[in-house]
Amino acid sequence: MAHTVFIDGGAGTTGLEIADRLKGRKEFELIKLNDDERKDPDCRRTALNFADFVILCLPDDAARDAVAMLDKASGTRVIDASTAHRTAPGWIYGFPELVGPSVVAGADRVSNPGCYPTGFLALMAPLVRAKLLPRDWPYTVNAVSGYSGGGKSLIERFRGDGSNIAFMDYGLTLDHKHLPEMQQKSGLANPPVFAPAVVPGFRGMVVEVPLPIRAMRSASPPDELRAELTRYYEDAPLITVHQEPVSEVLLHTDAAPSDRVDLHVFADSKGETARLVAVLDNLGKGASGAAVQSLNLMAGIDPLAGLRL
């Protein structure tokens, strides 16, 4: 028997990409509401409590409201793609490579990682855990994303008639909503200084952590950082740690959907400075692909099924 899945907020970019990854799969049956039903609280409540799995693709407050609609007796298991529960007690962080596939598989409440934190944590969490990087260093994070990460309003700003945006720096109040997640899940003593930006491409993301290793107390050489990431992800089919240096890292305006993450450790010839770089699809492993990976694990099927490899 197929597992029933209700995507609450399925008309948004993340919800549509999740549905695309579930299309044609016999393991799942999507519960669909028409426009009027989506606006009817009773219809939504019924769908939420009937489904085996619910994936929330909603603003934070709406996601909390949806969880509050669930009856304890329903047995519905939830994956929340919003920020609402990423650091909340009782929720499992939906990053199997960091928390363990079996932990996600056995969870009833899973919070989907944010797109920027996915790249940052893929780089930093294993290295801080292994004590190859100090947890109390004042780290900085430089990152760019395609405009799809901002939802319909930002998509319209970049695609609308007369748009000529070449680069958008934001998060200038330095209180970005991803910071608590980035600090908590990496084990850092302090939140990093986070400098996100948007470029005129639909999808794709580069997340970079520069390391002045010569000035850092107890930081390991770049080769050791790369070796630890390679060891840590050796059994992680979605994450590749590149061994050979490249001369440039590109995002393409016509990039296809991808649920992979590519990690790089760049360094100068003396190993005195380094740049940790993660490249991913903000709509893939940074959103929809991560939700489907968690759904697969929770349903007890191949975790890579339906993903864009």
Rank of each mutant, 00 (worst) to 15 (best):
D259L: 06
R260W: 00
I213F: 07
D254G: 05
S258E: 08
G119V: 07
P192G: 02
D254S: 09
L251N: 06
M182E: 12
R231T: 15
S247I: 10
L154T: 01
F158H: 00
Q243L: 10
A227C: 01
G146Q: 07
R214Q: 13
Y233Q: 05
V144L: 05
L127P: 02
G162Q: 11
L188Q: 13
K152M: 08
S218W: 12
A219H: 08
V249A: 00
A195K: 09
V206L: 15
S163E: 02
P212D: 01
K152V: 09
L127M: 00
R203E: 12
E224S: 13
A143D: 06
I239R: 04
V198M: 14
Q183C: 13
D161Q: 13
R159T: 12
V199G: 04
G204P: 11
L188P: 11
E244I: 00
E244G: 00
L127A: 00
Q243V: 06
S145M: 10
M124V: 11
R226L: 15
Y232F: 15
G149C: 04
F120D: 01
G160N: 11
D175G: 03
E224H: 11
I165W: 14
E208C: 10
V198G: 10
D259M: 11
L225D: 00
V193N: 11
M216S: 02
R129I: 01
I213T: 09
V199F: 10
P134Q: 05
N164R: 15
G162R: 12
R135Y: 10
A122T: 15
F167D: 09
G187F: 14
L188G: 13
F120R: 01
L123R: 09
L229F: 01
A255L: 11
E228A: 13
Y233C: 08
A143N: 07
Y232Q: 13
A256W: 05
T173R: 07
V144P: 02
P257N: 02
L174K: 02
D235G: 00
R214A: 09
Q183T: 14
I239G: 06
Y170V: 04
M168R: 08
L179D: 09
W137E: 08
M124S: 05
P180N: 13
A166C: 02
E224D: 15
N164D: 10
K152P: 08
G171K: 11
M205S: 15
R214Y: 07
S148L: 03
T140F: 04
N190I: 09
M216V: 05
A195Y: 13
P191L: 06
P245H: 02
V198T: 14
L172Q: 12
L225R: 00
T253R: 07
P212E: 01
P257C: 02
S153C: 06
K177I: 14
M182F: 10
D259T: 03
S258Y: 01
I165Q: 13
